[in-house]
Design a protein around this nucleic acid. Structure first.
Lengths: 350, 350
DNA sequence: TTGTATGCGTTATCAC
DNA sequence: GTGATAACGCATACAA
């Protein structure tokens, strides 16, 4: 049996409160031009019949949909849930909904695809996750079309109204510090693809921090990976077959760090006794592998919340704190894969 | 510089085609009551100005939002991306968008929370993922309110119009078969929480298949876990300290299987030589752990696609194939963690 | 401080 | 087959 009750509209509320719907509208939208007593009366009615203004109608009349779009393309998107929850915690507070748009940002019609998404969904603005957030083309297209957006990224590559940044240089400093504290002075790095700003940022941070710590970085201790498991394997093989084998390897993400663990296992190199490994992301499996992985975690949910606030601030100028943070720091999760370096002589039996 | 062009409306199209907007509307909605020639003309205009009917206006007039809601609560939601892509591949074909609603289905106001979500977002229907899909309360509430929904689940617990099922009994048969083929006859199982239908389904399937294969299942070889890593550890410790230690363990999900691997490692039990381990889900880390995990994978994307088709079929009776599959089979991914059982005597050195 | 009138872009009713 | 015209629920110039 259906208990669906006919929707109560602004007219009903107006009638019940004995005012015109214009006044009800004012109350809904928080206009100050309403008598205190009138407002109270109307608010009571709204409360008692649990009236909710219709998003469709509202949007049609005001040119706003109260929908936010989430653009992403991380295939191993473990984050996606955290992002969605973070964004929605702000959204629901402000009366917005989140419409998702997974995409393939390497395909030629990618920008067009996003533009079409905006056109057909009428989203008021876009939240853009890495790595898509690094796309200049998309940003440019959105600016040209005056479409509000905020990107979540690892480098400072936009006006601070349009971006929230994870400070990955600071992250690298923390990583180097951790390794140096443990006594490592022979550190290698598997970078991500260097056409990514995020990869450059981390490499830059790594170099700077290493230098500050008085470490010398051999050129062949820095190799470029592809941010996937397979390339982690390849790079690890390369690094671990070096005559002067590093005592610690930082991999640009956990996927590649898992590759390092695998190769070390195959070669009989013990982690962390003979080799320390650090990843980045704190993926689901980081705490599950053996040994569990020391890694950097970004405050993903917070990033999403900040980005959402910032985005809504673009087109709604009430109830929103004007200034929201732009830069947040990742933090190190210390686990089993890092330790003091030991003599890396013959691999001793189990 | 903004290149935002004024939106072209149905009126523009009507004017350009020299007809009334009612006729254009007919064409848009595929009404048969339009002259062949008129239709062609209108379609051409629509094409040439790339007109897209406005969702808001459409919704306001027709009581439909062209939005679908996605309700889920999987904290380790690796699936969520696959689900969203699967659902959207159908959605975009049909002109729908996907609005996400992560929730906490164990909180008391959960059902109410979902109902409110529907009310404020105006979604036309709900896609419900496991484990939320097992909630009787939600299903009942939706039926009572006449809200279309489709759940994705592991057991046949609803009218086939409202559900898409992953056949997990068949999955268990495949698992048992695999182990038997390898020569195991001493198999243990770590179930999920037995108040889940999915857990019961798998346990039932396991027992049935084992019996068919002529295996005897010791009572103490079946322990109930909580589907998380920690309980995987606990259950594994219990099973592996048994005098008659099993030669193979099936864990209800990969998280718990990872726990088994960890305990085996700690106890010096070699996997797969002395112990075979099978998980369920093919989580991101299943292929990354050492040894990589043999596990069952559900065709998640396909499930999502079927569910979406089914859902849209509830309120749109054209352009949709009426009958879509209801049951799909998971399949076994064989990796390193399963092998022939060997003598489990003294642990031999590496 | 409050109300009137009009419009947003579609669908739906009914007449032609 | 086709076309005026009235909803749909809300916001907003403009009045009062």
């Amino acid at each position: 049996m259906s208990t669906k009750t006919k929707k109560v509209t602004i007219n009903d509320v107006a009638r019940m409160a004995g005012v015109s719907k214009r006044t009800v509208s004012r109350v809904i939208n928080g206009s100050p031009l309403v008598g205190e007593e009138t407002r109270k009366r109307i608010e009571n009615v709204i409360e008692s019949v649990s009236f909710q203004p219709d998003k469709q109608a509202r949007g049609l009349a005001s040119k706003r949909s109260y929908l936010l779009g989430l653009v992403y393309d991380n295939p191993d998107a473990l984050y996606i849930d955290q992002v969605q929850r973070g964004a929605l915690s702000i959204c629901s507070e402000l009366g917005y909904e989140l419409v998702v748009h997974p995409c393939k940002w390497h395909e030629p019609d990618f920008v067009d695809n996003c533009l079409k998404f905006i056109a057909r969904s009428n989203v008021d603005g876009l939240l853009i996750l890495p790595p898509v957030s690094e796309s200049k083309l998309l940003a440019k297209a959105l600016q040209d079309a005056d479409h509000p957006y905020v990107r979540i990224a690892s480098a400072d590559l936009d006006d601070h109204d349009n971006i929230v940044i994870s400070n990955e240089r600071a992250a690298m400093a923390e990583i180097v510090e951790h390794l140096v504290e443990l006594g490592h002075n022979n550190i290698a790095m598997i970078t991500g693809p260097l056409h990514y700003y995020s990869s450059q940022e981390r490499l830059g941070g790594f170099k700077t921090s290493a230098q500050k710590a008085g470490l010398t970085l051999a050129d062949n201790h820095i190799v470029e990976g592809k941010n996937n498991y397979e390339s982690g394997l390849a790079c690890a093989e390369q690094l671990l077959s070096l005559p002067q084998r590093p005592s610690a390897i930082f991999a640009n993400n956990d996927e590649m760090a898992a590759g390092v663990l695998r190769v070390a296992h195959t070669l009989g190199i013990k982690v962390p006794e003979q080799l320390s490994v650090i990843g980045f992301d704190d993926n689901l499996f980081a705490s599950r592998v053996i040994p569990s992985l020391t890694t950097m975690r970004r405050p993903v949910e917070k990033l999403a919340m900040l980005a959402t606030q910032k985005l809504v601030g673009h087109f709604q100028h009430d109830g929103i704190s004007t200034k929201v943070e732009t830069i947040v720091d990742p933090y190190l999760i210390k686990r089993e894969s890092t330790a003091k370096p030991q003599d890396k002589g013959a691999a001793t039996a189990t």
